[in-house]
Design a protein around this nucleic acid. Structure first.
Lengths: 253, 253
DNA sequence: CGGACGATTGACCTGGTTCAAAAGCGGTGG
DNA sequence: CCACCGCTTTTGAACCAGGTCAATCGTCCG
């Protein structure tokens, strides 16, 4: 069985509460004006005056967890900007082995394709909101607003750099080094706890973290315990880790 | 000791023969007009009428093998287009471990940086010719010719896709699968032998191929022997391999 | 001819995987 | 409120792909 982008509509989540009051009376322009990811991703390249262009070109979607958004190899007819939640991006080998190439959060753009087909599969790991824009609408937007193309280049370059860091991690580093690097990278992008100590939120299952770091979940579990015993981290809950000793992690990474 | 881009001048090769007749009488415009990489890389985005812009902005350099061109972390003040030869791009861990992230050949652009510093070190593996363009000249060229920015985006996207393939290779595949994938990828980009059988040219030392595939040279040697015994390949010389059975490699990859 | 360096081969070792089982941990229904 | 169920996580023990160490072999140059 193959999912297509059309599947998304079937997986659109029902409104969590009665109905988002923001959506009913909103004008098309207003939708983007109030977007929490407004300053990020592609949209950040546009000024307030361009909002009508943006609003008509794109359309938000609320998705449940474990919902596919784009499928590797399928016709790449749209791109998606993540507004909230988290997605995993992965490639699959013919025999079923999967490698997660990255996680996407608010502001990230997914589905940019070189040729006609998507290069990877993207699937929500938590309930998420994404904003769909057709490829032709993106092309039109780029023609009309050259800054969008510049932003796209900058974002792609950042992603390329991150991919090369991941190549270094997978090609050279040991299990402990991989996990330490991963925790540090996440902690740099997240808010510290109330008491000021840094922490990381891991909404994805351990098997996904393993698939990202090139490790089995068993190995990941053992490494985390080792780091905990060493006093570098504390497991607060299953999906939250407090970093007790950033310097120790730095040294291990 | 640190190399800087200035080092390049010290390593410029003397003209191999008396003097390249093409260089002496050439006008600035003519230099790019006769360039073998003219249709590739950034330059392919420009029409013949734009050649003066290109020629004044860039300058060719002949380099010996094992010459550093850009150094990871150093101020990224220029980009380089490869005209001939081959370079390796690599990242280094504090303890000296190195991971080659890619090889650059004619048409490839190296030195594009996200922030102020180069993301990787680039070094020639064979004698090469590269074309230097300062960052400000590139910026000016992009402003004057929007197609250059589009080309840059396309090239970066292709590189990103290649990097993600490499992540899949390093994260999931076995040694035999890695080597098979590598040989197939190279064979797709090279001309077959006179008798029509595909072959690959490997000018770089085995240790570099290993550093690219995340393998030790000993392992690489063993895998190549295994593939040879299986009848999939033949070692013609140390740096050339004939692919006897592409289907077998495909199956192993 | 000799010396240096890369490639190859062999023997052994080990970090991470694999297989198996136990322990948490939400969710669901009684 | 608690008992049950399915899933993820953790832990233990044996195994193995690739790494490490070391010796040999080519081959290219001076």
């Amino acid at each position: 069985m193959t999912f297509s982008v059309a599947t998304i509509d079937a997986a659109v989540a029902p409104p969590p509460m009665p109905a988002p009051p923001t959506q009913a009376a909103e004008t098309v322009t207003g939708r983007c004006a109030g977007c929490s990811a407004r300053s990020k991703g592609l949209c950040g390249a546009l000024t307030a005056g361009d909002l009508p262009d943006l609003s008509t070109a794109s359309r938000p979607l609320d998705l449940l967890s474990a919902t596919p958004v784009v499928m590797e190899g399928e016709e790449a007819d749209a791109v998606f900007t993540v507004m909230s939640g988290m997605l995993k991006l992965y490639k699959t080998l013919p025999d079923g082995r999967q490698q997660i190439t990255g996680f996407a959060t608010a502001g990230d753009v997914i589905g940019l394709a070189v040729g006609s087909g998507y290069a990877y599969t993207a699937e929500t790991v938590t309930a998420s909101t994404v904003c769909r824009m057709s490829r032709t609408a993106l092309r039109r937007l780029m023609e009309r607003h050259p800054a969008v193309q510049g932003r796209l280049l900058a974002m792609t370059s950042v992603e390329l750099s991150a991919a090369q860091d991941q190549i270094l991690l997978l090609g050279c580093k040991t299990a402990v080094e991989r996990v330490s690097s991963f925790l540090l990278a996440l902690s740099r992008r997240s808010r510290p706890l109330a008491d000021g100590t840094p922490s990381v939120f891991l909404p994805m299952p351990k098997v996904d973290i393993g698939a990202y770091l090139g490790l089995r979940p068993e190995t990941l579990s053992r490494v985390l315990r080792k780091l905990e015993v060493a006093g570098a981290i504390t497991r607060l809950t299953n999906d939250r880790i407090r970093i007790e000793d950033p310097a120790a992690l730095e040294a291990a990474a």
